[in-house]
């Protein structure tokens, strides 16, 4: 960790030019190393996805596909398994979770941040503690709950499941964003006699839009990553989410098809990467303004 000269200002500090250069070299070397570390596995995923089945299982792996092929990707589309449905299921359930969690969480976060009520402490603590519950412990009771509500094997049921971790998280995160909004901004509206929900809707919400988006993205990503709920709650293959389908399809009874698996992995990763880069800027803005970043 020799980022010693990180913030050496270009214009000043009477340091020897050579020192700065040495520091720079170390710094850039460290960044290059970090880039290699971050990207090499991704490269390997991509490279493997273009290899033929035989090449992907070679005992002496080839660093660059010798005989690049699109067969693995075509296989995904042409396979008898509905990859498009998996994709659709994932997007719909995760998006719904993110939206629902943020919508329900925002008023609660606002109340926890601003309002006075006696159960505020207990409610605030339990929201945070709920966030910590081991998901695996709640599987069986949740299964029975969804069964009785006839929500098993449905996307709605899955959303209910995802809400167990999405909602507390959203409340917690939204509260930190609202905390960061100076209360004075609301004073004028309050004096004008606006009801609280209108203040929240018209004054506070526009200010925390990046925060809303950030929270939504986090919830979305956690739902997207979740494996244990769809594995348990979805019984029909065609209703499965993408990550669960990945586990179920490529660890079947016959063989492990690394090329196909990496092609499917790439397809699973890409949408998230695109979405993620799309919201990245506003996320950084949200995080910077939120209390998560503010000290």
């Amino acid at each position: 960790m020799n980022g010693g000269k990180t913030s050496a200002p270009p214009q000043g500090v009477p340091a020897a030019g050579r020192g700065i250069n040495a520091g720079r070299i170390v710094k850039y070397a460290a960044i290059a190393l970090a880039l290699f570390w971050s990207l090499a596995p991704v490269y390997w995923m991509l490279a493997t996805s273009f290899k033929t089945e035989l090449e992907a299982t070679r005992i002496d792996p080839t660093l660059i596909p010798v005989d690049p092929t699109l067969a693995n990707y075509i296989g995904l589309g042409g396979q008898s398994l509905p990859f498009f449905s998996f994709f659709f299921n994932s997007v719909v359930s995760c998006l719904a979770t993110a939206v629902i969690a943020v919508v329900i969480a925002t008023p609660a976060a606002y109340a926890l941040s601003r309002a006075r009520f006696r159960l505020r402490g207990p409610v605030g603590y339990s929201v945070l503690l709920f966030r910590m519950l081991p998901l695996v412990v709640m599987l069986a009771p949740l299964y029975l709950l969804l069964l009785n509500a006839r929500l098993l094997d449905s996307l709605a049921g899955l959303v209910v499941g995802f809400t167990t971790f999405g909602l507390p998280f959203a409340v917690w995160m939204m509260k930190s964003f609202i905390d960061a909004v100076p209360i004075e901004i609301e004073e004028a509206a309050r004096i004008d006699g606006y009801p609280r929900w209108q203040i929240l809707l018209r004054v506070v919400t526009p200010l925390i839009l990046p925060g809303l988006l950030t929270t939504g993205t986090f919830v979305f990503m956690e739902a997207w990553n979740n494996l244990i709920y769809p594995l348990t709650f979805m019984t029909t293959m065609d209703k499965q989410t993408l990550p669960a389908a990945l586990v179920l399809t490529f660890t079947g009874q016959f063989k492990t098809d690394w090329g196909g698996m990496m092609a499917a992995s790439t397809v699973t990763t890409l949408p998230l990467m695109i979405a993620f880069f799309a919201v990245q800027r506003s996320m950084v803005r949200g995080l910077t303004s939120g209390a998560v970043a503010g000290a």
Binding site: L54, F254, K255, T256
Partner: peptide, 24 residues
């Protein structure tokens, strides 16, 4: 299932496996 593509390329000598190996 990870041994099966390997024996197909002569990279496994003996494999303890079921009938379906031929198809794979």
């Amino acid at each position: 299932g990870e041994f099966r593509p390997l024996i197909a390329q002569d990279k496994v000598a003996f494999l303890w496996d079921q009938v379906l190996l031929q198809g794979v």
